[in-house]
Nucleic acid binder design. Sequence first.
DNA 1: CGCAAAATGGATTGTCAAATCCAGAATTGA
DNA 2: TCAATTCTGGATTTGACAATCCATTTTGCG
Lengths: 210, 210
Amino acid sequence: MSGAERAGGMSRAGQAGRLTAKGERTRARIVAAAARLMHEGGVAETTIEDVKAAAGVSSSQLYHYFADKEELVQAVIDYQAGQIVGNTKRAGLGTPAGLRAWRDLVVAQAARASGQGGCPLGSLGGQLAETDPTARGQIAGGFGRWSDALRDGLRDLQAAGQLKPGLDPDELAVTLLASLQGGLLLAQVQRDARALEITLDTFLSLVLAS
Amino acid sequence: MSGAERAGGMSRAGQAGRLTAKGERTRARIVAAAARLMHEGGVAETTIEDVKAAAGVSSSQLYHYFADKEELVQAVIDYQAGQIVGNTKRAGLGTPAGLRAWRDLVVAQAARASGQGGCPLGSLGGQLAETDPTARGQIAGGFGRWSDALRDGLRDLQAAGQLKPGLDPDELAVTLLASLQGGLLLAQVQRDARALEITLDTFLSLVLAS
DNA sequence: CGCAAAATGGATTGTCAAATCCAGAATTGA
DNA sequence: TCAATTCTGGATTTGACAATCCATTTTGCG
């Protein structure tokens, strides 16, 4: 899991050279600030200056840890993908109750923000897919791991006889992820979580047994 | 950004009242070029200069028809929403065969482009929802009309007894639209239409009467 | 302790794209 | 016809923002 999935530790401008504890903290502060701003306001709209102000760092600090904005964006992608996949794995989707609780959580989060920001990972995909091939690949990888986490839960459900017969957990996982992404996009655009709620509920009622 | 430019040079962009036939053509050429470029490469990436070059117009022409880039983007949204809703209405989703043909068309289009560009309307939503409130509202309206068109087809299917019992066409329409959007986003990010295919097929098999 | 590496401050520069401006040409309608 | 308007050309200006630079302080380690 921690793995050397991508070339993700080499963010240092110029050459390798590890980070001190203080440096690690500063870097994390920058990434967290950038992630928040980019989620709330979009990548293109978020300027380096915004990030500097929000994180409380100077130009030299930011460019000490990231070669350019592209590299910062890629760090943000890793950060968001890690958060999401971790949360999903921890959600316990292997039981109907767990799946429903996860549905409630997702809907509640979207409702609280009136859909604003959309999916922390998916919205980055929509913004970067055509402009940053490296980012696109990272996001695709994040979706892959996310889909795997969903599939694991659905497999457990199937093994427990909680799915309608004849369904393939792998295909259901892709469908669930797509439904979630689309529901979050509709909620984001409509500033209303209802579409997300309808979508997830319809999916669950179609695939859960009884 | 200071006011008072209303008096003198007032380029009447926005009000589509008095365009000559030639002007109409020029305007349409600009919108079509912008729509193509923004779909293929993203909104932020597409510069006014790109649009000028692709449409074969000068600065003064472009700013004669559109007050600023934002207004051009909004014209593109109207254009794409109109295309999509029209196509959907013409697709004849009221029969299982028509619905499957529509599914084939959508998948084939995505596959031909390897997912690139995503949904002509939805990708605009992901890029503009947090940066342009007017655009966000327009896209929401487009989704609404699109959803209505899907609902009409699903109602016909239900009336013909072609849907599994107990399903609500309104909710199914939202779910189908969300699944489509999510599937297109996954296809765009993964540069592969398979996720879209799986998503639509799973949806159809879950809702169509055996 | 001492000195190399790491971390920070912040002014500055360079680039590029959006938007403006001053014309002049084409068309419309009375 | 001819004058008002619509449309077009393209150089120029403006402004924002990413990225650089040099100087200074702090930290880690031998």
